[in-house]
Write a protein that binds this DNA or RNA. Structure first.
Length: 403
DNA sequence: TCTGGGGTCCTAGGACCC
DNA sequence: TCTGGGGTCCTAGGACCC
């Protein structure tokens, strides 16, 4: 596809940029001895595999044992997260230099909207080409870019163009391109949905597109059915949005198959809550909902959650809640065994300005919280709003609020 | 495939409110 | 007495993504 075609159509303006085998590529960049050799990052579970390792069937999320069987001569390295974070920052700087409209999806991929940059930077195809070269020159990593009119299709393009590739689908070629693909290529179709589709003979996106929305809804449910129908026709109105805020923060820990005593379990829980609460305070955010996640011996899962009356990032309050949730699951854990424990916090808000440094709440804040609790007990939640306002006024040494 | 750690979004029922 | 229409929030589970 040449740049002239692209500029004529000029509507494939969303880029999806995706680093190739990111963790493994950083390791190969930093250690020349690893270049050209199969590299596996992560021992217990494969976090990333270089393309040389993938040639032997090694995939990320695969168990380390199987990976070693498939590729015995692979170099296994333990992850260096800080190196990856640094590399990611450097790459995102290149993104930000390309266009102000950058939406990070994960540590190694982002959407970029390059509409309206024709006079400054050229066509989307030229921009994508420059971006790839700049990342290679400045950061030393291979990156693949997909270009299309929608996020969904741009993402599909980058997946197909990997590794170290560039693929643009012009608007008038969308249907032909999309409809020939297997259904798994659609962003949002995982193993379960793919199985359901294949069970009724739907293997290509074109077949899904031809089916019609009602039939798809009947097969997959309303949400998934509608979404899939739209995506199969490349109808995807999602914009590229800069800086989306996190909606939850969590931590989890795999426990293996060994039996755990309640005391061991509690120690793990304390560690998780402490870690998560610390990250919350660092991010100056507070949470109202505590979610406890467990995985049993048979890998089935269960979650329990509790929503607090007031948002907090204080370890003791969060820990008490998490302990209560874990206690409620005790009988199940007793019966079925536990292989993973996780805590995540949602319903997030910014730390109120009067409560900065919540982790070290002073006597006064504690007294105020106690007052709020007693008000709640006596008069119910409806009295709390006014009490909170009064409390803030008091803490900020403001005059009393009018009724 | 035999299993790590971090997320997002959707659904559905029930409690509760006006 | 038996019941409309609209809404929010909470909880639990599930699918999916990197």
């Amino acid at each position: 596809l040449d740049a002239n075609v692209c500029s004529l159509l000029h509507d494939a303006t969303i880029l999806h940029a995706d680093l190739d085998a990111f963790f493994a590529a950083v390791e190969q960049r930093d250690d020349p001895a690893l270049r050209g050799r199969p590299v596996v990052v992560g021992a217990g579970v494969v976090l990333a595999a270089s393309y040389e390792a993938r040639a032997f069937g090694v995939r990320s999320a695969m168990g380390g044992k199987l990976a070693r069987q498939l590729c015995p001569h692979a170099v296994v390295v333990s992850p260096r997260m800080s190196a990856y974070v640094d590399a990611s920052k450097a790459v995102f700087e290149v993104f930000e230099d390309t266009t102000p409209l950058v939406e990070g999806i994960s540590i190694d991929e982002a959407f970029l909207d390059v509409r309206g940059l024709a006079r400054i930077s050229g066509t989307p195809l030229q921009i994508a080409d420059d971006l790839r070269r700049t990342v290679r020159e400045q950061v030393g990593l291979p990156i693949t870019v997909g270009v299309a009119r929608t996020k969904s299709l741009a993402k599909i393009c980058s997946a197909l163009a990997k590794p170290d590739g560039l693929l643009l689908v012009p608007a008038d070629a969308e249907a032909v391109f999309l409809h020939a693909l297997p259904v798994e290529r659609l962003w949002g179709v995982g193993p379960v949905t793919a199985r359901r589709l294949r069970a009724v003979g739907l293997e290509r996106v074109g077949q899904v597109a031809a089916l019609g929305e009602p039939a798809l809804v009947a097969l997959l449910g309303r949400g998934t059915g509608r979404k899939l129908h739209a995506l199969a026709h490349n109808r995807d109105l999602r914009r590229v949005r800069a800086r989306r805020r996190r909606r939850s923060i969590g931590a989890q820990h795999a426990l293996g198959r060994r039996q755990r005593t309640p005391a061991e379990l509690d120690a793990v829980l304390v560690g998780l809550v402490d870690r998560v609460a610390g990250r919350m305070r660092k991010a100056q955010r507070v949470a109202r909902t505590v979610v406890l996640r467990v995985r049993f011996d048979d890998f089935a899962r269960a979650t329990r959650s509790h929503t607090l009356a007031q948002a907090t990032a204080e370890t003791p309050a969060l820990l008490a809640t998490a302990r209560a949730l874990l206690g409620a699951l005790d009988p199940l854990i007793e019966r079925r065994g536990i292989t993973l424990l996780g805590v995540s916090l949602s319903n997030l808000a910014d730390t109120p300005s009067g409560q900065l440094g919540l982790g070290f709440a002073d006597e006064r804040a504690r007294a105020l919280d106690a007052t709020l609790d007693s008000i709640r007990e006596r008069y119910g939640n409806s009295a709390i709003t006014r009490a909170v306002l009064l409390g803030r006024a008091e803490r900020a040494s403001l005059p009393q609020l009018p009724d």
